[in-house]
């Protein structure tokens, strides 16, 4: 278990690269909060470090920081750094309403973004399931560093649930990105918009993401382009056409 009051080596390196003049980003219990000077202004940071599971306290604390930024106004962008486990799996978390806490964190990020604080996710390690949805996937643009390894579920667990042999799943995973874990597959679905280049300065790449962030959700269009989600974009567009009465429907 890594020391949870200091950043992991990877996080420390990311913070040093982003904030060469120093920063006020702290880590406690694997939760990352703070900010630092960035360009002409500041960059707010929240995140999860060291493969920490996201539970009710963590989600509540991070959401509170995001709302602080939104309340202060001024368009400060928010960087969401993620190396997490899945949501914390416990009876107590569910008893107290983990779904509300995780949704609240996602909503805080969505609201801040809508109010002019561009939200940028940066995946630098693991993430999975509810923790992934509540953090990285709730940002406007999600980028990843090479070596990041998001997953919805690992293959042995998929094998257990689907009752298919692991060897068969491993073979399928090589040709089918829609269910297989890993960064490349999340890039193909459009969930991860871009993989950053570790040879180039990180700050400039993040600044470019902030400047060029799309205003609408383009993930399903990316998924079609990249082949990881061949149908999602067309299905959504078709529902919109039918709902808006732009087609004469058959029976």
């Amino acid at each position: 278990m890594p020391d949870e009051t200091t950043p992991s080596a990877r996080l420390a390196a990311i913070l040093a690269a982003l904030f060469p003049d120093g920063h006020a980003v702290a880590v406690a219990d694997g939760l990352v909060t703070g900010d630092g000077p960035f360009g002409e202004g500041r960059l707010a940071v929240i995140g999860i470090d060291s493969d920490t599971a996201l539970g009710i306290e963590g989600a509540c604390l991070l959401a509170g920081r995001v709302l602080d930024v939104a309340r202060a106004g001024g368009g400060t962008p928010i960087l969401v750094l993620v190396d997490s486990d899945s949501q914390r799996m416990s009876r107590r978390d569910e008893l107290l309403g983990l779904n509300e806490y995780l949704a609240h964190l996602a909503k805080a990020l969505l609201l801040a973004d809508a109010q002019g604080h561009p939200t940028i996710g940066l995946l630098y390690g693991h993430s999975a399931a509810g923790a992934f949805i509540a953090t990285a996937l709730a940002t406007r643009v999600l980028a990843a560093l090479p070596g990041a390894h998001p997953s919805v579920m690992d293959l042995p667990s998929v094998a257990r649930v689907t009752k298919l042999p692991l060897e068969k799943l491993e073979a399928m995973a090589r040709s089918t990105s829609v269910f297989a874990p890993g960064l490349d597959n999340m890039v193909r679905t459009g969930a991860v918009q871009v993989t950053l280049d570790p040879a180039k300065p990180l700050g400039a790449q993040v600044a470019a993401l902030i400047a060029e962030a799309p205003t609408s959700d383009t993930r399903d269009a990316l998924g079609r382009e990249r082949g990881g989600r061949p149908l999602a974009h067309d299905i959504a567009a078709r529902v919109m056409r039918e709902a808006e009465g732009r087609v004469v429907r058959g029976v």
């Binding site: 949704a103 996602a106 909503k107 969505l110 609201l111 809508a114 399931a129 992934f132 949805i133 996937l137 709730a138 919805v152 579920m153 998929v158 649930v161 689907t162 990105s177 829609v178 269910f179 297989a180 597959n185 999340m186 193909r188 679905t189 459009g190 969930a191 959700d217 993930r219 399903d220 998924g223 990881g228 989600r229 999602a232």
Partner: peptide, 25 residues
Amino acid sequence: VRLQEANAGETAIAEIMRAIAVTRA
């Protein structure tokens, strides 16, 4: 999430949450 389509399902959930925020707003 449907495990056989896990990445697509997970991403759709994120898209749905973002669309709900926009719709409610």
